[in-house]
């Protein structure tokens, strides 16, 4: 089970567009909302002084000092990348952690999980979180219970985070198909892997923020160099001497 498949028929995953993401946290909420059903993602002290809980998706925000341009703020969603060479799968001693041969989704079989936490250690991206109430590992399922769910309207058969994103910063599709929406996006916009040096070969890709060009001069800039004239000018000179 914990041997990785040689190749998968489909390579389902996400493209996350850092250019359009506004960091609204809607994907975090939708993810928690959908996956909280059934067995659930527990919270500890949710309304108390030190709340904590299990989330499968978190949104960071970073500032980037750009060498010859204005600084940029980039909001950055982080979740499982469904790696082709997933180190979280091979370390699992029970076979609970596995990658599906048919579509490449990395899943946890909670009935076989012993909660040793080794898979979370093996993941460079912090994609796995141990549920403090259930003692088993939780991770993004790519909403496997939505994407194939024929009881849902077709428009809803995509991951909850993608469905909810108000700025269309998240895209779902099959990377094995070069003609798919996500493959084209990656080709057009230079989609990239996170920490390629870790050798994980992630399926999910990130699109870089578009180049913003040099910063335009502020419309208020002329006001910075105002010289006082007349009485005000005389006062300015006199007061400057005191």
């Amino acid at each position: 089970m914990t041997a990785l498949p040689q190749a998968t028929e489909k390579r389902l995953g996400l493209v996350i567009d850092l250019d359009t993401c506004v960091g609204c946290q809607a994907c975090v909420t939708a993810c928690k909302g959908w996956n909280d059903g059934g067995i659930g993602l527990s919270d500890q002290d949710p309304y108390g002084a030190s709340p904590s809980g299990t989330f499968l998706n978190r949104v960071h925000s970073y500032q980037v000092a750009v060498p010859d341009g204005p600084a940029q703020v980039v909001t950055f969603p982080r979740s499982c990348l469904h790696c082709d060479n997933a180190p979280c799968v091979t370390v699992c001693p029970t076979g609970a952690s596995y990658k599906r041969a048919e579509d490449g989704i990395v899943l946890v079989n909670e009935d076989a999980c012993i909660g040793c936490g080794l898979c979370a250690w093996a993941c460079p991206y912090g994609a796995r979180e141990m549920d403090a109430a259930q003692g088993v590992m939780k991770k993004c399922t790519l909403c496997v219970d939505r994407i194939y769910n024929e009881t849902l309207p077709e428009v809803d058969r995509e991951p909850a985070c993608v469905r909810t994103c108000p700025t269309n910063a998240r895209h779902f599709g099959d990377f094995a198909d070069p003609e798919s929406h996500v493959s084209k996006l990656v080709a057009e916009r230079g989609g990239y892997d996170l920490m390629p040096g870790m050798g994980t070969q992630p399926t999910n890709k990130y699109l870089p923020p578009r180049a913003k060009g040099p910063g335009a001069a502020s419309p208020l800039a002329p006001l910075l160099d105002v010289k006082a004239t007349g009485i005000a000018g005389w006062l300015d000179r006199m007061l400057g001497k005191i």
């Binding site: 904590s52 960071h60 980037v64 600084a71 990239y192 870089p208």
Partner: peptide, 29 residues
Amino acid sequence: GTATGLDRLGLPSVLDPAHTAGNYLKREM
């Protein structure tokens, strides 16, 4: 920079934390 891929743009640093309270990742790793 490599963790976010933002090294393409320049030098990134943390602006706001993703969450103000602790979580499994912070406690464990």
